[in-house]
Nucleic acid binder design. Sequence first.
DNA 1: TAGATTGTTAATCGATTAACAATC
DNA 2: TAGATTGTTAATCGATTAACAATC
Lengths: 206, 206
Amino acid sequence: MKTPKISEAVVRRLPVYLRYLQELHELNIRTVSSYELGQKLDMNPAQIRKDLAYFGEFGRKGIGYEVIYLVEKIKQILKIDRHLNCALIGAGHLGIALSNYNRFTQEKLSIAAIFDNSPDKIGTPVGTLTIQPLDELEQMVRERDILIGIITVPAVEAQKVADRLVEAGIKGILNFAPTSLRVPAHVSVRNADLTTELQTLAYYID
Amino acid sequence: MKTPKISEAVVRRLPVYLRYLQELHELNIRTVSSYELGQKLDMNPAQIRKDLAYFGEFGRKGIGYEVIYLVEKIKQILKIDRHLNCALIGAGHLGIALSNYNRFTQEKLSIAAIFDNSPDKIGTPVGTLTIQPLDELEQMVRERDILIGIITVPAVEAQKVADRLVEAGIKGILNFAPTSLRVPAHVSVRNADLTTELQTLAYYID
DNA sequence: TAGATTGTTAATCGATTAACAATC
DNA sequence: TAGATTGTTAATCGATTAACAATC
């Protein structure tokens, strides 16, 4: 069950499989073949089988994959079968939108602290949390076992925030700021810059 | 200057180059080499040169790339040197956050209409726009020359919205809903599902 | 059993990187 | 000129796809 060296391309597809398998589960569909998955997700069935086979033998020859079982397995692989606490840094519109995004809590990924440095935001309640000053970042990361930082501050501040998160011992960063972050190799970064996405899309228009 | 067949990987890197070149420009830096770009962006300089060379000869041997010139060229390539109107469908927290995201307007990508079907949202002003009922989608797409749809509705409604956008003649979709959309080949889709990103990140934690 | 579908190997395809002549 | 750096070709590396024996 332990893994050799899985490419990022493979890892990025797992949540896509998971999402669709969960849809199937809600429709009470018990079993699905790589062919059916491929049809729906517009992917090659061989690729789907190969991706899954990196992590174990989850299917049955002649039958396909049991939906519930595969959901559980993928959750284990992604390590989202356990709780994972995130800190949100930047309580602007986007930050607030994310903290209200209930899907996070459903998925055992929860926002455990929100930070901002603007005096008129500090102390404001957001759901069950209260916006805290950035000074308290390191302490909260330790106290609340926070492993992921979600950066929604302006681009100019993003690197500073990233440095502090790294220093505080965080393991991953989801970066919404439109800038490239430099972090040590043991920290993972995923960029979710909306402008970048739209610009990529623009290329394909006409 | 016209292009053979550029892979998506190349296109996705162009906005990253652009973003950093714009930072350099603000710092009044005139010229940059592929080596320097590679250092900062953590990429192979040969890859950067090759990516750019697909579209033309933008550099000077022995010197490097002129920052302003390259910024303009990449904007042309991505087709963000001209205005591009987007429609936002779903005026929830995320939708509102996006419509307030001023970077869009800076970049000639503007949100030209906002739709939602909830009666208590219709008519509400958002910046210079007013939330409109989904019924008016097709008409607005035509009237305002909208080429891109940004979907921020719940997952269950996303495919329906996508179908209507396609039907209305849209060319690209930025999909924030956590579901895989099926669209015809002439329509591009980029997925920006935040849960998917966090799940991918979770894999790399520890 | 016959049909279906996996897991996996081998073949193909494509993307990244190294190397270097051209040249500013 | 000498040093630097591009654009591009060739070499390498990795990812996708096809094919098929194994087996439910």
